[in-house]
Simulated scan of single mutants.
Amino acid sequence: MKRISLTCYLILLLAPFAQPELSVAEDQPSDVTRPHFQVSRPPINNKIQPDRVMHADLSTFADEAWILPVRSFHLSPGQIMSRALSMPGLRPFVLVGDDPQSLAWLRQRATELQEMGAAGLAVEVADNEALARIRAAAPGITILPVNGNDIATRLQIEHYPVLITATSLEQ
């Protein structure tokens, strides 16, 4: 086993030296090849401030009708057990649907969710009207239609509505 590992290590170590050198046929390209050697570079924009945080509300840029309906087969409306999480740096977000329980939950917690800067993922939405009802229940919160199956699997949850923060999962 060590022989194979050592062999692989040596191959990786020596690989850069095994490549042939590039040879140049001519220093100056001819008129025929000149267009192929011209390099066009995009302009450099030095006005971007890398330390500035930008938040995009994607719901205002595109018509979301093409993605609807959204169905998350691993999730359904219901009660969840609150539990602690350890996901440092995670921005708070909610999983909701267009069911009465989710709409009531959003109305009840809208101010709290907005104050903490939570985003919303509508994981069960039939059409544009249902998405509009969800957004109306929590004005000021970005809510996007998204399939929640992967999130449900990774966080081991089966029900929504749910608030997910860096430190907890709660209803």
Results as ranks from 00 to 15, higher is better:
L155E: 07
D31V: 01
S86G: 03
F93Y: 14
Q156V: 08
V125L: 04
A126D: 12
I164Q: 04
G89N: 10
F93N: 05
P139Q: 01
V94Q: 10
P100C: 08
P88V: 14
T165N: 02
T167Y: 07
L58N: 01
L75R: 10
R91Q: 03
S72F: 14
V146P: 09
T165D: 03
I67M: 13
C8M: 15
A132L: 13
L22M: 13
D127G: 01
H74W: 10
M116P: 00
Q49R: 03
E170K: 12
S59T: 15
L6N: 01
E158R: 13
I11E: 01
V24G: 05
H159I: 02
M87Q: 09
R109H: 15
H55L: 08
L121M: 15
I44S: 11
G117P: 02
G140Q: 11
G97S: 08
Q156D: 12
C8Q: 11
L58Q: 02
N45M: 08
A119Q: 14
E124K: 05
P16E: 05
W66N: 10
P161N: 11
A137M: 00
A25N: 00
P92K: 04
F61K: 06
N45F: 07
S59E: 14
R154W: 00
E129C: 02
S5E: 14
N147F: 04
H55N: 02
A84C: 09
A56S: 06
L144D: 01
R135N: 04
L6H: 08
S76C: 10
I80L: 15
L155T: 12
Q79C: 00
R107Q: 02
Q28F: 09
R34C: 09
A104V: 05
C8L: 15
D99G: 01
P77M: 06
P35Q: 07
I4S: 05
L144H: 06
L75S: 01
R154V: 09
Q38N: 13
R135T: 05
T111C: 00
W66G: 13
